[in-house]
Design a protein around this nucleic acid. Structure first.
Lengths: 186, 186, 186, 186
DNA sequence: GATGAATGAGACTTCATTCAT
DNA sequence: TATGAATGAAGTCTCATTCAT
């Protein structure tokens, strides 16, 4: 594995477990078996390292949520699939979810970076916009609607990962239904 | 104002603005016009200071959300009022919301402390439990339901405070309606 | 018990156990159940408190070592008794021995204070001086001789208190004999 | 000179002069012309730094005391030489003696560390053991005997270094004789 | 590309002491 | 006599980063 990959992998594991500020560069250096200078060869600063991770992660997530969406599905089924895609991505990669939890609320992240990374969700944004235009979805601001739905996914996965609730397919289905009912018309 | 109060007030302002780790004790000391030792006279450590703030805040919020709830209101109206109460509490005290945003995702917070502070929400928990028992609400796990609704409130207030959306009474009403539709039966 | 006595008692216990620098005034305050100001009412500073303890201790020791010395005993028996008196004083008051161990090597103690407190040992000094004059003892500088003998006592008691050796009357007798042989003539 | 050596040298000088607690890291940093971080690069903590010094010192002393011991010397002469070796080591390196004086009585030192470092004195321990077995020395516990003799050396050197007595070869010889008389048989 | 010794600002906290009550 | 809130200098240690090799 390349040194760069080693560093990124170690960082996501450490940050997801301990938090951003409890993960000093010195620890990343030790755990990824590289020299101090090597990290700074690949990443200009700790900020840059974290933000790189953040960007790559969002690209990956952007791809994950549109998996298996095809045009033959009706609108509601597409919604269910997108929701499930995101949920299963987090469930399969809990470290990545935890990393985002630690990251999003940090002053490290600049709005500029957040905005840049929204491009990965353009298909999802378009999907909700279309839903509103078609009259299938409630006429809420798209950005708000997306945030509401995405935060629903986060709420469920957070409880599942923290063992505050027992995961079943039935639970997943009902939670998605709840999400759907919050935005659908009728 | 007592020194203790000065310290707590300064801390919530600084932490909400800069984040937990970007708020050194030295800054709290300077801004609250006390000596270093004075902080440690009242709070054993930075951790303890922050956790005290967190506890007092939750007590305040617990009281805020049941404001003006009276028995003559029907179930749905009570739900709208609780939602609005929480939203307006955050809107009136944006610093407190921001403090929580910084705090909740920090490894500083121990589950133990989180759990202890849930007692302040017992009336809310009971309210949702009753709704399910009465058949007014969907049969989702109560903890999940509460987290879903509360995170909806956070989503809206976050966007409003960050100027990502323009607040209107109409917007508030529609968002609450969306929340309600996600849990009501029929 | 008077506050002053409470403070002194607490201090000797704490210092003997933890050492001078590991015994902050705040701990003495807590353990002796007095207010911060009260200590400073009786003792001008931590230094003064410790030095007071030191002086009172040496007065007590000075009295202890000449206990039961009467003129009918021969010189050697007097030596054995003095040695034993000091040893038993330490054995009966281990805290006091430990206090001195922590104290003597501290830069807190000024030579001036050490010298002042030597007056309590005048009888012992005279005893050794006489021994040399009589030709019973080796012609070593008196101060050196006293330090050698006293440090022998400390060596034995230290090992006994630290459980590095098992105390028996036989062991005590033999160690005193060894001390005696180091200074006696013939 | 390596930074590590610079730090150790500076530390022994400062501690011997001022005492353990009167030697802050900041002073060591300033006097040894290194950055704060550099000390912690080599030594995990102040404790570790001091203990390293202690260990290296005992190794040096262990070697010093058996200097020039050869098998042609008789037992008594060997004893005199060992005594003198230790004395001269201290006299040549007064800082090292003073460092030990400050260190030994500190709660910083754990018994564990003391014990580990006794291995450097195995030859001396064996020497005394042999003396007892041969019937040349009094039948005292070896550990006690060694402590008695070593503390005699410390007593003399302490007085010499503190100018409480004037050093002469004659005085040295007589003090060693006194030590010898305390343990020899006949 | 890769190393790791070295940096130094700044983090949290302690502690002897004071002083108004 | 007795209290204890308040002080602030100073303590140990961490950490992102650099640079000569």
């Amino acid at each position: 594995m390349s040194k760069r990959k080693q560093i990124l992998d170690t960082t996501i594991n450490l940050v997801s477990e301990m938090g951003l500020h409890a993960t000093p560069m010195s620890l990343i250096i030790k755990e990824s078996n590289v020299a101090a200078g090597t990290i700074y060869h690949y990443f200009k600063s700790k900020d840059k390292l974290i933000n790189t991770l953040y960007s790559e992660l969002h690209e990956e997530m952007g791809n994950a949520i549109i998996q298996n969406i095809n045009h033959e599905l009706n609108y509601k089924d597409k919604f269910f699939l997108i929701w499930k895609n995101l949920f299963l991505f987090y469930k399969t990669h809990p470290r990545k979810f935890e990393f985002l939890e630690h990251y999003e609320s940090s002053p490290l992240i600049k709005n500029e970076i957040k905005e840049i990374n929204q491009r990965h969700y353009q298909p999802a944004i378009d999907f909700f916009k279309t839903g509103i235009q078609l009259g299938v979805l409630r006429n809420l601001p798209v950005a708000l609607m997306i945030n509401l739905i995405f935060s629903n996914v986060s709420t469920l996965i957070r409880m599942v990962l923290m063992d505050e609730i027992e995961y079943t397919d039935q639970l997943l289905k009902e939670t998605i239904q709840s999400s759907w009912d919050s935005i659908k018309i009728n």
